[in-house]
């Protein structure tokens, strides 16, 4: 079992005019070769920031304050711009939420694809062959290779994005809500495609707000809240026995076929990350919060094999 990515004690802050936002605080996790790790959280949970931090593509207001991001044995935070550029799209690539805004509308699909390959040192002739092969592999009709992005459907655009993301056999693909902008049928097809990608041996970090989809598709699931990891476990373990009150809340808020109970949402609002609550970050919304939760920050601990939880109330089993 070898790890492709190791993130250790990562802190990311945004410096905005409205204040300093602690978007990611003390996050530690790894991604193993050939697995799909789902990162689940509401908007503002820091899940996307995590993805952008790994790509070193944080907006200018954002900065990694502390921690290590080790990809394939190399600390990404120590790389030069040029080294980073080679890694992006090479060892690690990204698929974005909205394929409508990420492909350049002014340039033909094939041109963008070949340029990307050329930037990674692949000569024109081989670039053309690889691009055409990859587009075919993800199911983009051949006659659309020379089309402009606006002539493609949303699903086709996302297929193109995925084709580019995997063309150079990366170790890791970060997929940031890759299906959110698509309708349900297309969603399923794109997720199947990501499954195929995984079978090629590429690890996938699947960022989503949809815990049901995460449990259905991923190997392991990591729950984030307020920029921190709340729970991390294999999906079967999480589905059977979620331990963190937040995870439990998320699970009960998803509609289930055959269940008598109506889905219930978690009361309260996500924390203001300019001044996060003391103690456990979830305590203001936690139905079981005690005095200790309000004052002492819990640590992420392994309560059973490969099942990590950050909660005072969950004892080691």
């Amino acid at each position: 079992m070898s790890e492709v990515l190791l993130v250790e004690d990562l802190y990311v802050k945004y410096y905005t005019r409205r204040g300093i936002i602690s978007a990611v605080s003390g996050v530690t996790f790894d991604v193993i070769k050939g697995e799909m790790l789902a990162v689940v959280g509401e908007s503002g949970s820091g899940k996307s920031t995590l993805g952008y931090a790994i790509m070193r593509l944080l907006p200018r207001s954002g900065a990694v304050e502390r921690g290590r991001i080790v990809l394939d044995g190399e600390d990404i935070l120590r790389l030069s711009e040029e080294e980073l550029r080679r890694i992006r799209g090479g060892k690690v690539s990204m698929v974005f939420q909205d394929p409508f805004t990420t492909l350049d509308p002014l340039r033909r699909v094939l041109d963008q694809f070949r340029e990307f390959l050329a930037e990674h040192g692949i000569d024109a002739e081989r670039g053309r062959i690889i691009a055409e092969e990859m587009l075919e592999a993800v199911g983009v009709p051949k006659n659309l290779a020379n089309a402009y992005p606006h002539q493609l459907s949303g699903g086709q655009k996302q297929r193109v994005a995925i084709a580019m993301a995997i063309a150079l056999n990366p170790l890791l693909v970060i997929a940031d809500e890759p299906t959110t902008a698509l309708d349900v049928v297309i969603q399923r097809q794109v997720m199947d495609l990501l499954d195929d990608v995984k079978k090629r041996g590429t690890s996938i970090m699947f960022i989503t707000h949809d815990i049901a989809l995460a449990i259905e598709r991923a190997d392991r699931v990591m729950i984030m809240y307020g920029g921190e990891v709340m729970e991390l476990a294999e999906k079967s373990m999480l589905a059977k026995r979620a331990l963190h009150p937040y995870t439990v809340g998320l699970l009960s808020s998803m509609p289930r076929i055959g269940s008598e109970k109506l889905p219930s949402s978690i009361p309260g609002y996500p924390p203001d990350l300019r001044s996060p609550p003391k103690g456990c970050i979830f305590h203001p919304r936690c139905p079981y919060a005690t005095e200790r939760c309000r004052t002492v920050k819990p640590i992420l601990s392994e309560v059973e094999k490969n099942h990590f939880v950050k909660c005072h109330l969950v004892k080691a089993l």
Binding site: M55, L57, R85, R86, I87, R88, G89, G90, S93, M94, F96, D98, T101, T102, L103, D104, P105, L106, R107, E115, F116, E119, H120, A161, M164
Partner: peptide, 24 residues
């Protein structure tokens, strides 16, 4: 815009990105 983020995520050089941005 996100187009530029996507270009960077693909490892395209800044000079080349600037050229595309210029067209926009």
């Amino acid at each position: 815009s996100k187009i530029v983020v996507a270009y960077r995520a693909r490892g395209v050089r800044e000079e080349v990105i600037a050229r595309h941005v210029f067209k926009h």
